[in-house]
Computed example of a mutant assay.
Amino acid sequence: MPTPRLSPSVFGNVHLGYLVIETQKFSEWRRFGKDAIGMHLDELDSNTMRFRLDDNECRFLLQHGPAEDVITMGWHVDDHSTVDRIVSRVTSHGVPIHEGTSEETALRGVERLLRFPGPKGIVQEIFTKALTSAQPLQMHTAAFVTGEGGMGHVAITSKKPAQIRGYYNTLFDARLSDYIDETMNGVKLKIRFLRVNERHHSVAIAAVRGLPIDPIRTRVQHLNIQVAELDDMTRSYTRVKELGFRMALSVGQHTNDRELSYYAITPSGFEWEVGWNPIVIDENTWEPSTHKGISIWGHSMVGQTIVDKLTQFRTAGTSLLAKEETVPAISGNGIRDSRTRNA
């Protein structure tokens, strides 16, 4: 059983605010983020760039390094009392918290941040105030949807999905939205979708059923952002293809959140989902359920080669012996799948 949380709940007061990506492929990311996806680009120096989706100074911070991966998730917390509750939950389990330096806060465009370890080595950061920019947005997209639901979601593959679910339940009172059972390339997956506010999910956790393997090299399998207009989703899909970036899944519609989207492959190798019009959850009526397959239609695999499949098999085999970070002090024993609404 997971360790009981301190009350009151912080559900609804936490929103995905920014992501930090470590990469050495700045020229490719410049073309991908600005020209293909259509975000606003700010180049700070030769080793640092940021992408904006709205008035916030930073939604994606790209820093020079070898990981080619998302290394940090930043969570916008509504007020200082909620921060205090989250901090108490972390420290009461013996997990250290560190305050960000002035340089780190400036790069992320926030006033102050606190940092602590997260599952799969993805550092978690919380902040209360994001700085805004007076510089007009220069984007190929009319608008992105952020607001109360946060800036999108992150999907993770894991050998220990119950522990990751337990982690976000302990920290943010995450609620289970639903499950998806899917088979891809002969591999059976169980995907859990967790919400921390009105967005259908801020974290998705995929696990191979019956086997302790992780077929994905990166910590994050994909991240998602949402456009305000359908035309912006289809136009960015066209730009991604015309600019020569690889597509992972064609345009389709999901079974659970009903979002229309496509998945492109980023220069760092993880996937980037651009979506439109997912449902917003009504807490008074929503009940978790299980869906068969990720898509009502579309989302066909695009251009996967035998080399891609062999690489994935090799990664899965290697993961059998690799230790996965779960922050056990916070994750407890995880949450069994028999738990439902507010587990």
Results as ranks from 00 to 15, higher is better:
284 N>T: 15
71 I>N: 01
311 T>L: 12
235 R>A: 14
320 L>H: 04
71 I>Q: 03
241 K>D: 10
307 V>G: 01
199 R>F: 03
72 T>A: 08
211 L>I: 12
196 V>Q: 13
284 N>F: 09
113 L>D: 00
118 G>E: 02
116 F>H: 08
26 F>H: 11
107 L>M: 13
254 H>Q: 08
293 G>K: 10
171 L>M: 13
36 A>I: 09
308 D>L: 06
94 G>E: 05
229 E>I: 02
319 S>N: 07
331 S>W: 05
14 V>D: 04
274 V>T: 12
326 T>N: 09
183 T>G: 00
285 T>N: 10
25 K>P: 01
81 S>G: 00
40 H>W: 04
80 H>F: 01
295 S>N: 14
254 H>I: 05
253 Q>T: 12
23 T>M: 05
139 M>G: 06
107 L>C: 03
42 D>G: 00
296 I>G: 05
342 N>M: 06
63 Q>L: 13
38 G>R: 04
253 Q>N: 06
84 D>G: 03
58 C>H: 02
155 A>M: 13
123 V>Q: 12
333 N>Q: 13
207 A>M: 03
236 S>T: 14
325 E>R: 07
202 S>Q: 15
239 R>H: 04
249 L>D: 06
274 V>C: 02
26 F>P: 07
342 N>A: 12
8 P>G: 06
70 V>L: 07
329 A>E: 15
285 T>R: 11
97 I>F: 01
143 A>P: 01
209 R>E: 15
207 A>V: 02
116 F>W: 09
312 Q>G: 04
101 T>S: 15
282 D>R: 11
251 V>D: 01
321 L>N: 07
42 D>R: 14
121 G>I: 09
176 L>K: 11
338 S>N: 12
219 R>L: 02
219 R>D: 04
224 N>H: 09
152 G>P: 10
264 A>G: 14
219 R>F: 03
66 P>V: 06
79 D>C: 10
180 I>A: 09
110 V>C: 12
239 R>Y: 08
152 G>Q: 10
59 R>F: 05
335 I>H: 07
152 G>L: 07
67 A>D: 13
261 S>G: 09
133 S>L: 05
332 G>Q: 07
312 Q>T: 15
111 E>M: 07
15 H>N: 09
3 T>C: 05
192 R>L: 12
195 R>E: 11
334 G>D: 08
142 A>E: 13
105 T>H: 04
238 T>G: 00
69 D>T: 04
47 N>L: 08
62 L>W: 09
281 I>E: 08
169 N>I: 01
285 T>W: 06
35 D>P: 00
26 F>R: 12
327 V>S: 03
206 A>S: 14
297 W>P: 02
185 N>F: 14
107 L>K: 15
297 W>L: 10
232 D>Y: 09
192 R>S: 15
1 M>Y: 06
86 I>T: 01
76 H>Q: 13
88 S>N: 14
160 K>T: 11
240 V>M: 09
9 S>C: 06
320 L>C: 05
262 Y>D: 03
228 A>F: 02
262 Y>T: 07
122 I>A: 04
201 H>E: 10
29 W>L: 09
233 M>Y: 01
227 V>E: 03
44 L>W: 10
315 T>I: 15
39 M>K: 09
88 S>W: 02
